[in-house]
């Protein structure tokens, strides 16, 4: 080893060095203003994202209309003012006329009013089904992800079994098990199909958190296990679940419509619902396609609104796009 030449002489920095370093706290500058959390910076990004704005606008219009629909609907949805014009042979579905913007259905009920009020049931089913699914999914996923081991294996096998059924078939089975169909059987059926998705997602991201450095750091600090789960793992694992929930609202609405279409929705046929309207429309699909077109269009636009919101939310919360 003859690399023992020793360091060659190098000029040392000037005399001013010491004072300059003292003046400039060695760590560099820290801007003196309150910190900005990740959520806040994500929100600031979202506010400028046109995709999010379009999605949010659609959703907002839909929600507001659903809430105020009973008051702004020009006709009572159960009344049949145009029943006189219905001719089962020649004119089963009366067309538009003054006072009836979109005409009426085969029972002479004002189509526009039914479309407006129909949004309520769709929204209620979609939101409650997703919330319920979220609750179940978070419980199962958090249990599996936080405890691990045997609990994880059992929970995940159950979830796998649930996932192996096609969602609609599962919902169909559950809805038909109920003694009599109602709005709530619909909600529970759809929620059940959402549970495994949320559970899997949360469990996966909890596991990722569990092996992350900051959780190890909390462990090494001596933080209580409960606090580690609730303060560190769960909040950091929720991002993808929230995004999925937004996207799930769209599928829940579509599934709700599909189940109603199949006659598993609210048994009270007088109360409008988009899927149910779509189901009634199929008899007249050749003579009066508009009867199917309007509820279908509503379902698509609303689902699109939620999807756009979910996608832009995903982007905003993506750690890779953080600066």
């Amino acid at each position: 080893m003859d690399d023992n030449t020793g360091p060659s002489r190098r000029p040392t920095l000037g005399d001013r060095r010491k004072e300059r370093i003292d003046a400039l706290a060695t760590a560099g500058t820290v801007v003196d203003e309150p910190g900005k959390s990740l959520l806040r910076s994500a929100w600031e990004r979202l506010r400028r994202d046109p995709v999010f704005l379009v999605g949010a606008a659609i959703t907002l219009v839909f929600v507001v209309l659903a809430i105020i629909s009973p008051w702004i609907a020009p006709w009572d949805v159960t009344a049949n003012p145009l029943i006189d014009k219905v001719r089962p042979q020649s004119n089963p579905v009366p067309g538009p006329e003054p006072g009836h913007l979109l005409g009426a259905d085969d029972r002479g009920r004002d189509l526009f009013s039914r479309l407006l009020v129909g949004s309520r049931q769709t929204l209620v089913v979609g939101v409650f089904a997703t919330l319920l699914g979220l609750l179940g999914g978070i419980t199962l996923g958090a249990l599996a992800g936080a405890i691990g081991g045997f609990v994880d294996t059992v929970v995940m096998r159950i979830v796998d079994v649930m996932l192996s059924f096609p969602a609609l078939l599962l919902a169909f089975t559950i809805a038909s098990l109920a003694r009599e169909p109602s709005q709530w059987t619909l909600i529970i059926a759809i929620a059940t199909t959402q549970v495994p998705i949320f559970a899997r997602l949360l469990r996966g991201s909890m596991l990722a958190q569990r092996s992350s450095d900051h959780v190890l750091a909390a462990r090494s600090l001596g933080v209580r296990p409960r606090a580690i789960v609730f303060r560190h793992m769960l909040p950091n694992a929720m991002g993808p679940v929230i995004v999925q929930a937004t996207l799930s609202l769209a599928t829940a609405i579509i599934e709700a419509a599909a189940l109603s279409f199949l006659g598993l929705g609210n048994p009270d046929q007088r109360q409008p619902e988009w899927g149910q309207m779509l189901g009634l429309a199929q008899r007249y699909i050749s003579e009066a396609p508009h009867l199917a077109f309007y509820p279908a269009g509503c379902i698509i636009v609303v689902a699109l609104g939620f999807t756009l919101m979910g996608e832009s939310l995903r982007e905003a919360l993506d750690p890779k796009s953080r600066r």
């Binding site: 690399d3 023992n4 030449t5 020793g6 360091p7 190098r10 040392t12 920095l13 060095r17 300059r20 370093i21 400039l24 060695t26 760590a27 560099g28 500058t29």
Partner: peptide
Amino acid sequence: NSIPRLDAARGDKLSPVPGSVA
């Protein structure tokens, strides 16, 4: 001056560049 050297004695203080690229 920031680089610790294998052939320098322990205890020699490094003289880092203060601050950061920020």
